[in-house]
């Protein structure tokens, strides 16, 4: 926090970055701790959005639009991933009626 503040001197940016960082960590921890496939996917979305927030904030900070452009692409990719994820989950659910990720462990040593 102090590091960021001293690095940029602008409390506002640091706040945003902090927010995004917290979001990212929440997403990550959620991903690691939850067992439900859909929730896990949502957690990755959370991490994506954390990055998006950072991009927007930094873009605003530098008056640079490319950050915002990036966010659009992130959203697009996230949407594609969402489609893929849901399709996959449906496919899996057809095979085995469970959403618990731990039930899928046929491939292991």
């Amino acid at each position: 926090m102090i590091l960021l503040a001293s690095a940029f001197g602008q409390l506002a940016l640091a706040h945003y970055l902090l927010l995004s960082g917290v979001l990212f960590v929440i997403g990550l921890v959620g991903f690691l701790s939850r067992r439900n496939l859909i929730v896990m996917f949502l957690c990755t979305e959370l991490m994506f959005q954390a990055a998006a927030i950072a991009f927007v904030a930094v873009g605003r900070y530098y008056y640079d639009f490319s950050g915002q452009v990036f966010v659009i692409f992130i959203l697009t990719v996230a949407a594609a991933e969402a489609a893929l994820a849901l399709a996959l989950v449906v496919l899996l659910f057809r095979r085995k009626p469970t959403l618990n990720a731990e039930d899928w462990r046929d491939l292991s040593e």
Binding site: L28, F31, L32, S33, R34, R35, M40, A101, E102, W104, R105, D106, L107, S108, E109
Partner: peptide
């Protein structure tokens, strides 16, 4: 290599 996604994720992280 126990086959559990979370476990992999935890190990990776």
């Amino acid at each position: 290599h126990n086959g559990i996604v979370q476990s992999y994720a935890v190990t990776m992280a």
